[in-house]
């Protein structure tokens, strides 16, 4: 048995599914962020796997570095927003933030 592209794609797909599940079902805003991190990691793993097995070169790794950069800035900004939301609502459950409803 040899480890080929399909195995890495399977890991990436399952990771993406778990991330999507987390994003869709969590009510805690930080929990939703954890799901986004899972999805970004799944995409990055697919980039590197395709580069290694199909494309060659280093373009897949370049994309993955940019994914890591964007994930880091996204996490910093989102967590700052979460802190401010907690200060005004004393809660970060996404279904309680209804100030803009109606």
């Amino acid at each position: 048995m040899e480890i080929g592209l399909v195995h890495y794609l399977t890991v990436g797909a399952v990771l993406f599914g778990l991330g999507l599940f987390t994003v869709m079902t969590r009510k805690n805003a930080v929990g939703i962020l954890l799901g986004v991190e899972l999805i970004l990691n799944a995409a990055a793993l697919n980039f590197v796997a395709f580069e290694h097995f199909v494309a060659g070169g280093v373009s897949g790794q370049v994309f993955t570095v940019f994914i890591i950069v964007l994930a880091a800035s996204e996490a910093a900004i989102a967590l700052a927003i979460v802190l401010q939301v907690y200060r005004s609502y004393r809660s970060i459950m996404a279904d309680r933030l209804t100030a803009l409803k109606n």
């Binding site: 880091a72 910093a76 967590l79 700052a80 802190l83 401010q84």
Partner: peptide, 12 residues
């Protein structure tokens, strides 16, 4: 990255 750093400091 610089913009995100400044933005998160201002927001938090």
């Amino acid at each position: 990255l610089l913009a995100a750093m400044i933005g998160s400091v201002v927001l938090a």
